[in-house]
Design a binder for these strands. Structure first.
Lengths: 112, 112
DNA sequence: TCGTGGTTACAAAAAAGTCCGTAATTCACA
DNA sequence: TGTGAATTACGGACTTTTTTGTAACCACGA
């Protein structure tokens, strides 16, 4: 129920990007469109149920396009939409920030 | 124990930015340093336990600096670190992307 | 007694994972 | 010429793990 609509774009945006998988999936999808099983291989620790749920979430958010091909064995392809591709550099920038600011931040675990 | 270290900066980064509160707190802290109770007022729906936990998480990540002043009543101030300030425009960019790509995305709830 | 910035113990909810089933086709085997 | 196993992309029921929230408490000084 979370107060219906947040009106804050950042909050809405983080609602779909939050969590462990969305950015990871983006990371793998940015190379090229992938099939369900490709994504499973890319990330062996995600259960297929979660993978399927996360992909649906990204699809509903307009970040990923799902294309199912007729015939068996089933074949489904997931690709970034234009919006998804626009998002990629922003996520990369976050990654760069995280690395680049390690000196500026507490550095956390330096010796490990 | 989530595979210890992810080695992927994006994954590590999202670990601290994920969730409802981190970006919101950033949003309020970017105006000026705030006290614990200011942040409670800014966002009345966060419980003070969670607020305290989230602030600690941000502090450990080197995004927020906590300054406690001696004397009573207790006074503690939270401010963005330089790294935190560098992060702000990146988060804003995400918000812009979310708004700007509404036409590109599915648009979701257009009439509401 | 109130206000501040916490903490702890416990309850509730959300997220993630396991296990099993389904569809429709191809392929192996005998 | 069946029988059955494999494949792919899921769906549903259920359990476990993790995250959030609620409520109460503490310290101290005015």
């Amino acid at each position: 129920m979370k107060d219906v609509v947040s009106r804050c774009p950042i909050e809405e945006c983080m609602r779909v990007l939050s969590g462990r998988w969305p950015t990871l999936l983006l990371y793998y999808l940015k190379e090229r469109p992938k099939r369900f099983s490709d994504l499973q291989r890319d990330n062996p620790t995600v259960s297929h149920r979660i993978l399927s749920l996360e992909l649906r979430k990204l699809e509903e958010a307009g970040i990923v396009r799902r294309t199912a091909y007729e015939g068996y064995p089933l074949r489904v392809e997931y690709a970034l939409t234009p919006a998804g591709e626009q998002l990629v550099p922003l996520i990369d920038a976050l990654g760069d920030w995280w690395e680049g600011s390690e000196g500026v931040r507490g550095v956390a675990r330096a010796a490990e």
